[in-house]
Amino acid sequence: MAESSNASFIPKNSKRTQKKVRGTRRIYLLSYVSYVVFFGTLLATVIVFFFSIQVNKSLEASRDRLIEEKNRFSQEDIDGLRHLEKKLIIANDLLNHSTAPSELFSALESVVADNVYFTGFSYQHNVNDTYTVELVGRADALNPVLYQRELLTQNAILGRGDVTSFDYAISESAEDEESDATTALVQNLLGSEDPVITFTFVSRGSVADIPYTPGATAPVNDTEILSVRPNSTGGTVADDTEQGVSEEGVVDSGQGTSTNQGI
């Protein structure tokens, strides 16, 4: 009975898929990791070894090239060049700071009043490229001194100055002739003797105002220097000592006479 129930007229499919039994696949993760790590380490060691050799070779090559570059220049050449450079710097500096004090005299000659004469001069090159000019002048009245001061202060080079001191005295001739000073003084007051006013004009300026420019200062020519030329006051002043600076150079002018009226 049991067989008959199994004998079905419907043929059984022999190709009926048998249900596969899914077994547990064993993956050895630790094994893979260990092998990868180990062989990776070995490979890395080899690579690092060769890379190290390569870097070392590059380093040696760079070192050799650096020594070669260092040997290319000599200390003598460098010292020579440095010395030349320093000379050029100094020469440039000296040229830029070169001065022409003779310009002061040209400036002074152009503003000397006719009834004032100068008996002393001093020029001093100070710290920080400045200069001080001190002029000692004489006049027979205060008005010429005032006029001289005005002329000097209007000058471009000597303008930054002023009369710093003056001395009013009777002339030496009066003292010599008259033993009694009181008498001389009275005579002076009465106008019989000329007073002598000695004043000092001090000017300070920058040496940049009197630069030396090649070619600007003409070569000295005696004829030119000694020639009399008009000055700014309308009078005449010769460059020579006799008239330009010394007492003998005093020439009365209308200006002096007219300004004297104020005293």
Binding site: G120, V136, T241
Partner: peptide, 16 residues
């Protein structure tokens, strides 16, 4: 470089 100049005319007789 000229750093100082000074002169005075003290003489009355020969001022040149």
């Amino acid at each position: 470089r000229i750093v100082g100049i000074s002169f005075t005319n003290q003489s009355e007789s020969d001022s040149r």
